[in-house]
Write a protein that binds this DNA or RNA. Structure first.
Lengths: 152, 152
DNA sequence: AGAATTTATGAAACTAACTTTCAATCATGG
DNA sequence: CCATGATTGAAAGTTAGTTTCATAAATTCT
């Protein structure tokens, strides 16, 4: 499974930063690498606790930072005031559409957009590390339910 | 000036919502419509207070919400945990590159990206209301200063 | 005009999402 | 088995934003 590769990368990241491989850190990393969708730090903590792990909020945040810098998770700003995390390993880069009604998240990918984005950055002498591209609107389902007929 | 047109739109928005045109609301709207760059709600409040206006935080937030729904300002999620606002009137839509070192904000515009984005949304039956496209990285200046030579 | 009713305002209290602090715990080497 | 240093997490602090509610201002009624 991909998780194993991720855990190795995580170990290496800890090593590079002279941090010990502890059971808490490994548990958090494993939970993150196995996550199937977006999650908040607090949701992650809750899940770990529900699974009987003895970890604190602080350690979760600290470990997420390491995972982030190792490129194993990415941060998203879907809702204001809170950060959503998303596993980055084993998934191609993608962007998001958020339904403002039902909060559903639809992923999309466009090589054309990525290419044009790279061109734009290059023109400004800007080196892109990460990016976020999010569309907010109404998903098909919510449009069907109402507000669809007249205004498009 | 564009500000006048914005104030008219704001008045109309207040009217539509059966809200009175008060001096506080007008002062806030004027400050927003005259803002040249991105600002946070608290920074706006501080500026108004510095200018001698007697307004409270609550009224600022409430008024920003009206301005937002009237399309006169847009929200941005540049830094996590805080919302930046940006005047929307009299400016064409644009996206941003944020230098993670110096926090400089560079604006860019790409019809090609907008078009492709619309295509992607359409393919999913998604109706786009707003979007945000932000690149995080190193600006030309910060690249020149260091970390440029070897790694690209 | 003055009373009654409605609406707006903002200080203070609250909340949510983190972050910082620090005493206790744990691991490792000697 | 003790000393040293890293790790942990509870509790306190911080920040951005929201809710509550008493007061103030405006509007309507008579």
């Amino acid at each position: 499974m991909e998780t194993q590769k991720g855990l190795e990368t995580f170990r290496a990241a800890l090593c590079r930063r002279h941090l010990a491989v502890t059971s808490q850190r490994m548990k958090i990393a494993r939970a993150v690498l196995e996550a199937q969708d977006h999650f908040t730090a607090d949701a992650l903590l809750a899940r770990l606790k529900a699974d009987g792990a003895r970890v604190g909020r602080v350690t979760v945040y600290r470990t997420l930072k390491v995972l982030l810098e190792a490129g194993l998770v990415e941060e998203r700003a879907f809702d204001k005031g809170r950060v959503a995390y998303e596993r980055a390993l084993g998934r191609s880069h993608h962007d998001h559409m958020i339904c403002v009604t039902c909060r559903r998240v639809i992923e999309f990918e466009s090589a054309r957009i990525e290419r044009e984005q790279r061109r734009q950055a290059q023109a400004c002498g800007f080196e892109v590390l990460t990016h976020q591209h999010t569309l907010f609107g109404h998903c098909r389902g919510c449009r069907a339910k109402r507000g669809n007929g007249s205004k498009a």
